[in-house]
C-alpha cells in the first residue's frame, strides 16, 4: 500500500482519538503532540493504526518517530515488507 493510503488511515485514527480536532489541522509534517495528543493518545494512535492495517510491530519500531510522517513511514515500510513475503 502506498504511503498516501496509509497516511489516510492514520488520519482517520487520529480523528478517532482526538475527536475535537479539525481535520484540516492535520498535516503530515506535524507531530501528534502539536495536535494536542498526550502520551496515551499517541500510544493509542499507534496501536489503532496497526490494528487498522492488520500489522503487528514491536513498539520499539516507533522509537525514533517524531512526527506523523515518521509514523506513516515505519508503517509503510513494514507493510510493504509483509506484502513482499
Amino acid at each position: 500500500m502506498e504511503k498516501e493510503k496509509i497516511y489516510s488511515i492514520v488520519k482517520d485514527v487520529i480523528l478517532e482519538v482526538l475527536p475535537d480536532l479539525q481535520p484540516e489541522k492535520i498535516t503530515i509534517e506535524k507531530s501528534l503532540r502539536e495536535l494536542g495528543a498526550n502520551s496515551i493518545d499517541r500510544m493509542e494512535v499507534v496501536t489503532l493504526s496497526m490494528e487498522a492495517l492488520e500489522m503487528k510491530l514491536p513498539l520499539m519500531s516507533f522509537a525514533a518517530v517524531n512526527n506523523i510522517e515518521g509514523l506513516v513511514e515505519v508503517l509503510a515500510e513494514h507493510y510493504t515488507e509483509r506484502a513482499a513475503q
Binding site: M43, E44, T47, M50, E51
Partner: peptide
Amino acid sequence: KDPEYLSPRYAL
C-alpha cells in the same frame, strides 16, 4: 486473538 491491539487506555 490480538493482544497487541489492546488499547493503551486499558491500563488506566
